[in-house]
Write a protein that binds this DNA or RNA. Structure first.
Lengths: 143, 143
DNA sequence: ACACAAAATATTGCGCGCAATATAATATGA
DNA sequence: TCATATTATATTGCGCGCAATATTTTGTGT
């Protein structure tokens, strides 16, 4: 009985540090992304597009764990900026295909130093700890 | 050089699974919080208030890693619902003191089973892994 | 072929999350 | 004491993040 109330304390929760860490990390990206006019979410969308060239909205959502309510307006903004195009698939008109443009690919060059800069000044974890954290997070995600 | 582009892949990043995990966890809370009319952020504000009774907005922000831009409108909503009161401190009128009401304290009873329900059906981690994850997240946070 | 279900995306609405700015009260220094 | 700086909170604006709903297209069964 008393233990149930004990678990309601912030310090006894796993979710809270996860929530706080995630925001802290996104915040760490902003100094590098903002000069490029990008948000963190847009940045991870580009990561997928730099790799795949073309993706359906649904595939993109599955990869990033985001839904159309988040992606559609985001992709429209990127389209307006000329970074991507959005076209209905010809085989199945329900599907919207997102493709990266030349301008979108040029962003990759400007972003290539960001991961290095962050890991240089950012993490207090040893390499071994970082690997374990990575493993635990993906174990959790793939549940 | 090639390695810099390699690091721009989603699978080589620590930030992305953190970001995705955090949202997944918050999502896991919603089935239990929504019937109570609470969001996850409101829930962690209550965790602090159940423990402390009175807090300044600044203290609350420090504990939760949130700023006034997030907290002020959130607290105003809770005040309108009758869960908290907001009063300027008499010693220092710049400070706003947030206090939990009787109605706010009654929520604790309704929330007391939530952590147990989540850990029961939620996590794929062993107890040892959860502890290690907890340690790594706090090590990261306190940097 | 036609009704109906399912699938994929879009839209709407609301609450964060945070940078930038504003406002008001207190502290500081000449 | 009086300008100035600092501190604490509030406000504004914008982009998520997601539930709920709508829209359009495709699949299915008869």
């Amino acid at each position: 009985m008393a233990q149930q109330y004990e678990q309601l304390k912030l310090g006894n929760q796993l979710c809270f540090p996860m929530y706080a860490c995630a925001r802290k990390i996104v915040n760490g990206y902003n100094p590098y992304l903002k000069p490029l006019g990008l948000t963190y979410t847009q940045y991870i969308v580009f990561m997928v597009l730099w790799d795949m060239e073309n993706v359906n909205v649904g595939q993109l959502g599955e990869i990033l764990h985001l839904d159309a309510g988040t992606l559609t307006p985001l992709l429209k903004r990127l389209e307006k900026e000329g970074y991507v195009t959005r076209k209905r698939s010809e085989e199945d008109e329900r599907v919207t295909v997102v493709s990266i443009t030349e301008k979108g690919n040029e962003l990759k060059e400007k972003c290539k130093d960001i991961p290095g800069k962050l890991s240089a000044c950012g993490t207090p974890l040893t390499e071994k700890e970082a690997k374990e954290l990575y493993r635990l997070l993906y174990k959790f995600l793939n549940k």
